[in-house]
């Protein structure tokens, strides 16, 4: 606290803004009214993307209907990686600026991100069997995503492993930051090494190698998955803040009663 007051003038506008926003109470006030809207849009957009992909998008010339697995596999993979990037960002803020909100976010991102990674692995496996002829191979892409899953699991366990939550947050933040090195490895694994996994179809700089009527449902499903992730994490963070407040009130009452 003392440190914050001392540094308020020196850390500059960014630091000051972050510290104002880092207040869990303010987060709760800002985000709670948005939660129903976030939930409605998540369901609508994800639903649209998945129904379009499952029932209406054209089948691939080569893979046939099996290419429909793309509309769940690819968004799950993107969200799994974006979620880990968010986790690493929170850990960075947690270590440098000691944000209470960053620790809170890191704690709630972990299980959601692990879930999306799991979905990515399972759907990928179900896609691999009919197309490649194998549920699993140890190529660089599959292995690095499996490592991502274990990083999530390690983070979930580590952040809850200490009696003093601050120690757990510190240790887990270091794990998350070290593990972030895996993200570029996942992205570039298909370019750096020979893999059985296909190369990147979607390109943000050039032309995507996918026909437009297959691209639209993919993008809509991806926006939906991102929204689901944001909604789930925000709802969990709000719940965690309220749980903490309840605990605080009960403890204070117990102290007075004793």
């Amino acid at each position: 606290m003392n440190e914050n007051v001392l540094n308020a003038g020196r850390t500059g506008a960014a630091g000051a803004w972050l510290h104002r926003f880092a207040n869990p109470g303010r987060f709760l006030r800002l985000v709670r009214p948005a939660l129903p809207w976030l939930a409605v849009f998540s369901i609508l957009i994800t639903g649209t993307g998945l129904v379009w992909g499952y029932g209406f998008a054209p089948a691939d010339w080569q893979q046939g209907d099996a290419s429909r697995i793309m509309y769940v596999h690819v968004p799950a993979a993107w969200v799994a990686m974006a979620g880990y990037a968010a986790l690493a960002g929170c850990s960075f803020f947690s270590i440098v600026w000691r944000h209470p909100l960053a620790d809170l976010a890191a704690e709630e991102i972990g299980p959601v991100g692990a879930g999306f990674t799991f979905v990515c692995l399972v759907t990928g496996s179900l896609w691999g069997k009919p197309m490649w002829g194998a549920y699993w191979v140890w190529d660089a892409r599959l292995t690095s995503v499996l490592v991502l899953f274990f990083l999530y699991l390690g983070h979930i366990a580590l952040i809850r492993a200490f009696d003093n939550p601050a120690h757990g947050h510190r240790a887990a933040a270091i794990l998350a930051l070290v593990g972030a090195i895996n993200l570029p490895i996942i992205v570039y694994s298909v370019q750096w090494w020979n893999t059985l996994h296909q190369g990147n179809t979607i390109s943000f700089t050039g032309n995507s190698k996918i026909y437009i009527t297959m691209l639209y449902p993919l993008l809509i499903a991806s926006v939906g998955f991102y929204l689901c992730f944001v909604t789930l994490v925000c709802a969990r963070m709000c719940a965690a803040i309220m749980e903490r407040r309840t605990r605080g009130l009960l403890l204070a009452a117990a102290d007075r009663g004793a």
Partner: peptide
């Protein structure tokens, strides 16, 4: 064991046929 490694291109059958017919691509 033989595993198939498919490419990263996704298009409907009609588009592939049209490309073949136009002589622009033979898979």
């Amino acid at each position: 064991e033989v595993l198939a490694k498919h490419g990263s291109t996704y298009m409907p059958k009609d588009v592939e046929q049209a490309l073949q017919k136009a002589g622009k691509w033979n898979p």
